[in-house]
Amino acid sequence: MEFAERLSALAAKVRQQRGVIETEEATKNAFVMPFISSILGYDVFNPLEVVPEFTADVGVKKGEKVDYAIVKDGEVQILIECKKSIEPVKIEHASQLFRYFAVTNARIAILTNGETYQFFTDLDAPNRMDAKPFLVLDLNDIDETLLPELQKLSKDVFDLDSIISAAGELKYIGELKRTLAAQFREPEDEWVKFLTARVYTGAYTQRVREQFTTLVGKATKQFLNDQVNERLKKALGAQAYAPNDDVAAAVVSSQPVAEADLAEADAIETTLEEIEGYQIVRAIVCSEVKPTRVVQRDAKSYFAVLLDDNNRKPIARLHFNRTQKYIGLFDANKEETRVPISSLEEIYEHTEALRASVKSYL
């Protein structure tokens, strides 16, 4: 599953479960830990990568802790502070982040409630966390233009220098977009006055202000609709052609097959839990092969982990589409044995069997 798909899967989980998440600990377990694991790619069960309840004594009030510190190459790179998902994210919640940012090597700080993630760095003053984020990720409304920058924070392609160099532009573009969006939703008087002056030559009286407040609201909404419709017209126009009889016949005859393929694809739902299980299996067998050779392939009844994307080289199968979960292990004859598990952590108990499967294909 690609980076964007994993993010979409987490967003779907947030939408499904937000109604039952009421505490900070529940938010961490249900939303934030999967974000660290599935999106950023760090092992939340490895204290050499993810340190929960991180404490730094120098210059920090006693007893205060940051919820998570992400470590790479032996250095703290990212600090994460969490709040309950039912609370909006506010800079007032970041007091620990401000203090810890100054006494660690971290250049990235994240403030989150599991749904909105605010990313901070030190653009305004060295070793001092900015008051405004340079990137805001909202899982309820994902801005796909931010994904390439977000991916640079993931373990496999961690590129701090690139992130920092782009942070300034990201910060102001993000703020401008959010400001424009706010004006489109509910235009402020200064915005109304600015636009009114471009089209109206009379005095800007109270009556004119009230009139143009309504007109500006209507105009901005119509402008957005026009832009969307224009793009749709272009997209449809590019496909508007008249096929010859042979092509038309082929389309008609292949329609049932295509519909069947689509129906089968729709029936497959890759879950975040399957992705997390896959990452655990891949981490285990990386002692034998490069991670890029271990791939996943989802099916209706199971989630397969394969070597070299070859279904003749199965490493494991995750049977998670039922109440009782199983991991399918393969012997030398490629015969599958299903072993019940109650949690993802139990996959580690089968490390030797998983590695043996990989070795048999080498």
Rank of each mutant, 00 (worst) to 15 (best):
Glu336Asn: 13
Glu186Asp: 15
Arg322Tyr: 06
Val14Asp: 03
Asp331Lys: 02
Ile142Lys: 05
Arg178Ile: 12
Asp124Ala: 14
Ala267Arg: 00
Arg198Trp: 12
Gly114His: 06
Ser357Ile: 02
Ile39Pro: 04
Leu236Pro: 01
His350Gly: 08
Pro256Glu: 00
Asp331Phe: 14
Ala182Leu: 06
Gln296Pro: 02
Leu329Met: 13
Phe158Arg: 07
Lys325Val: 00
Glu53Ser: 08
Val14Trp: 03
Glu169Met: 04
Tyr172Phe: 05
Tyr200Glu: 00
Val60Cys: 06
Lys300Gly: 06
Thr104Asp: 00
Asn113Ser: 01
Ala125Arg: 11
Asn310Val: 01
Asp266Leu: 10
Leu79Glu: 02
Gly174Met: 14
Val339Ala: 05
Lys28Tyr: 04
Ser154Asp: 13
His319Gln: 12
Val60Ile: 14
Ala167Val: 09
Arg6Phe: 07
Leu272Cys: 06
Ala30Glu: 10
Thr201Ala: 01
Met129Cys: 07
Ala26Leu: 12
Phe320Lys: 03
Tyr278Ile: 07
Leu236Asp: 04
Ser154Leu: 07
Val208Cys: 09
Leu146Asn: 05
Thr337Pro: 00
Val20Ser: 15
Val339Gly: 04
Asp124Arg: 15
Arg6Pro: 07
Leu329Phe: 13
Lys83Val: 04
Ile315Ala: 02
Gly277Leu: 09
Gln17Tyr: 11
Lys132Leu: 15
Arg355Ala: 11
Gln324Leu: 14
Leu224Tyr: 09
Asn244Lys: 03
Leu48Glu: 15
Gly41Met: 12
Trp191Asn: 08
Tyr200Val: 04
Gly168Gln: 08
Phe320Ser: 04
Asp159Glu: 04
Leu306Ile: 03
Thr112Leu: 06
Lys193His: 14
Val199Asn: 03
Thr292Met: 11
Ser360Lys: 08
Lys290Met: 01
Ile268Val: 13
Leu180Cys: 08
Lys171Phe: 11
His350Phe: 15
Ser360Cys: 03
Val289Tyr: 00
His319Met: 13
Met1Ser: 14
Lys61Thr: 03
Asn321Phe: 11
Tyr326Phe: 15
Ile341Lys: 14
Glu92Gln: 13
Leu224Pro: 00
Asp189Asn: 13
Val192Ile: 12
Ala12Cys: 07
Leu97Gly: 06
Val281Tyr: 05
Ile315Arg: 03
Val103Leu: 09
Gly63Asn: 10
Thr121Ser: 09
Ala197Tyr: 07
Glu49Ile: 09
Phe320Leu: 11
Asp298Pro: 11
Thr220Phe: 13
Ala249Gly: 05
Thr271Tyr: 00
Glu49Gln: 15
Ile39Tyr: 10
Thr27Trp: 02
Arg18Gln: 15
Leu318Ala: 04
Glu87Trp: 14
Glu81Lys: 05
Lys325Ala: 00
Tyr278Asp: 12
Glu169Phe: 02
Asn140Glu: 11
Lys61Arg: 08
Glu115Val: 09
Gln296Ala: 15
Lys313Ile: 00
Leu153Ala: 10
Arg297Gly: 13
Leu97Glu: 02
Ala9Cys: 04
Asp309Phe: 01
Gly19Leu: 13
Ile21Glu: 03
